[in-house]
Design a protein around this nucleic acid. Sequence first.
DNA 1: TACCAGGTTCCGA
DNA 2: TCGGAACATGGT
Length: 282
Amino acid sequence: MKVEKQKDKIIIEKSLDFDVKETLECGQVFSFIKKDENNYIVISRNKLAKINIDEKYITINTNDVDYFYNYFDLDTDYSKIKERILNINSTYSKYLKFGNGIRILKQDAFQTIISFIVSANNNIKRIKNILFKISEKFGEKINGEDYYSFPNLNQLLVATKEDFINLGAGYRSEYLVQTINMLKGDIFSVSNLSKMNTKDLRKTLLTLKGVGPKVADCILLFGFYRTDVFPVDTWMKKAYYMFQTKKMSEEKIANYFVSIFKDLSGFAQQYLFNYMINFKNK
DNA sequence: TACCAGGTTCCGA
DNA sequence: TCGGAACATGGT
């Protein structure tokens, strides 16, 4: 994949390795706006990227070139990852072929934690809406434009349960308030969390309110780039039972997939998820 | 009108 | 440990 960094933009030659629509709309991220098929706005922390797609190039316009270069994982060769995954397991390989161009985004850990607590038992449209309202109320305008930053920990520490209820978070409001307060602690400093191995980090994340196994795995994958996890939701359960008859708990299904895909589990999960929601039963 | 949405918590067995 | 009800809210 040909990538060129300039002062205020990243220019990427279109290829099978990067599909903006698939990457943004596969449910790993919520704080983005689709202007039309060829124009997206992405907000991460207090940073903004305007993405334009034309015949030949994907252009990421931003003041934070290095940040979004890392965010879109542009140093990683996804064609190699895909090739490795397809050679692991013949049962699943024909379904993993779908989802070309999906990249795992290296998102902000705090934003990911809040986002996926909101995501529980919720639909994507509503998740996005709630998160945008949280940004509008507690974030700040970016570059004086009409887009709001995702609030940081300090900005959300003042938020009350009533605030979140008013923004539509429902019964998750209490979880949000409790979790935000827990995140103040030294244990949850990003520098401390980043040192942990995946197992310990998962255990730590599970102590947060509103964070169960599935949300923890999403945080690990999208917020900490731990690709040796396999988030199991209703779709992944369906995928599992397409091939297996033995009834298993969601935790065990996750372990089952990780035992197959190992450090590529997160990528495999995204490809399989993409197949399930886009092609299965259609 | 009921059911569902990228589930978690809480409780009883 | 395991299974099941309850949990806000808006879309369909």
